[in-house]
């Protein structure tokens, strides 16, 4: 299948852009590389047949989170010069190797159930079944409502914190 080829191209771009995010000195360019990384991951979701997830990935990670990060960068003071080497670099490297190693070992050791492609009728996509899964009475409607209430509480808390006396 030609999607296998696309998958590998996207995978290489994803890893390369993820490396750029951590290695680039210019923090604005690093943020742009992160946008590329998010977008390519959405492409990976498409090759796996998860259309809804791919679209939501672009919508939330590129459209909202990356923009917020860029705004935060603009409000930081030392953006215009290239960033200095961070003192926490070695600590971060050690933490990365510990965590990354644990992740790789854990993922490669565990036994995953074999993937069976869902037998979907033409053009059905995944959004309808996801919607039923989330909003049906036997589904996840209660966790959804709880998370919505929590987000609302967080927004109100943030407003309370920045409020003028």
């Amino acid at each position: 299948m030609a999607f296998d080829f696309v998958f590998w191209v996207l995978a290489v771009i994803a890893v390369a852009s993820a490396l750029l995010v951590v290695l680039l000195r210019n923090i604005f360019r690093a943020a742009l590389a992160m946008i590329l990384c998010f977008t390519v991951i959405a492409g990976l979701y498409v090759t796996l047949g998860a259309d809804f997830l791919a679209v939501v990935q672009v919508l939330i990670y590129v459209g909202a989170i990356s923009i917020l990060i860029i705004l935060a960068i603009m409000l930081t003071r030392d953006v215009w010069q290239a960033g200095r080497a961070s003192v926490v670099g070695p600590v971060a490297a050690i933490a990365f190797f510990l965590f990354g190693g644990a992740l790789v070992i854990g993922l490669s050791r565990s036994r995953w159930p074999a993937y069976t492609p869902p037998n979907l009728p033409p053009g059905e996509g995944t959004s309808a079944s996801l919607g039923f899964e989330i909003f049906s009475r036997s589904g996840f409607v209660l966790p959804l409502l709880i998370s919505a209430a929590m987000l609302l509480a967080a927004v109100i808390g943030a407003l309370f914190l920045i409020r003028d006396e």
Binding site: M1, A2, F3, V46, T47, L48, G49, D51, P117, N119, L120, P121, P122, G123, E124, G125
Partner: peptide, 11 residues
């Protein structure tokens, strides 16, 4: 039952 499609056709 619809025939299984390739991922390209599904997308």
């Amino acid at each position: 039952m619809a025939p299984i499609q390739s991922a390209e056709q599904t997308v």
